[in-house]
Amino acid sequence: MSENQPILALDNVSKIFGRANQPIYAARSVSFGLHAGRTLALVGESGSGKTTAARLIMREYHPDEGRLLFRGEPLGKASAKAIKAYRASVQMVFQDPFSSLNPAHTIRYHLERPLRLHQRQLGGSERRAAAEALLERVKLDPKLIMGKFPHELSGGQRQRISIARALAVNPQVIVADEPTSMLDVSVRLGILNLLNDMKKQDNLALLYITHDIATARFVAEDIMVMYAGQIVEWGAMDSVLDHPQHPYTRLLLAAVPDPDRRFDAAQPGELEQIETIRRQSALPQPDIQQVGENHFIRPIPDMVLG
């Protein structure tokens, strides 16, 4: 596989809800690729379509337009066997560690089940050893944790279990949808560092979905900003954050809490201006403009580049 071929790619994918005469684009002409050993951050406010992108990758939604490519092959009409292999290769870590684990089962069950489904050649003792190794990888003590139920663990511990469960099937791609937003700031970094270590050790391709741009910068090399179903700006992390070109990206970055800037009262006309930016950014923008070495935007009308 060439250096530049992504493991997984969305090619001009749209997902449409609503009625035929009044379509709502939850995703509009979305294209991106996930590369081995790299993390791509997808940021945007609630309702921007971030989770729709994740669901398209997980095949919970099927694209209304465009294609999902796995190792360069379109996945549209793949066989059941190919789909199962795909599921073992692409795993997800969910936002809420309190509802993504089954309260009626022990941690052992959560970790052994994917092994039982996807690695049938393993015998019982091998499976137990594999589950223990998984817990050790996410820095939890198997002796203490294996027999416990989810409610006996903290939020951070539960999220580590979710990561261990995702790793159980030796995936190539992990989609993490807001994995730290329900955790305290003091344990967030531990989870982000863990994801980073796993990425390096296993050469994983990671899609990190978040509305917290500061944590996106902490884990990812590349970033995409999504609004109203469209990716409005994307490219290398520091290029986008230090020189945002799209008005919506600037709006989003200006709203990120920053202790160096005190809040000022909204200027006259500021709220109207925000509304204008939002309205224009939500319109379909087929053009793509390159604004830096690895930095692109979908410009909106009357946009002045600065």
Binding site: E45, S46, H211, L251, L252, A254, A255, V256, P257, F263, D264, A265, A266, L271, I274
Partner: peptide, 16 residues
Amino acid sequence: ALDVVVQREILQRIDV
């Protein structure tokens, strides 16, 4: 529970 753009609007409002 709100995203950052809305969060800023609300806190600016409270401050005023």
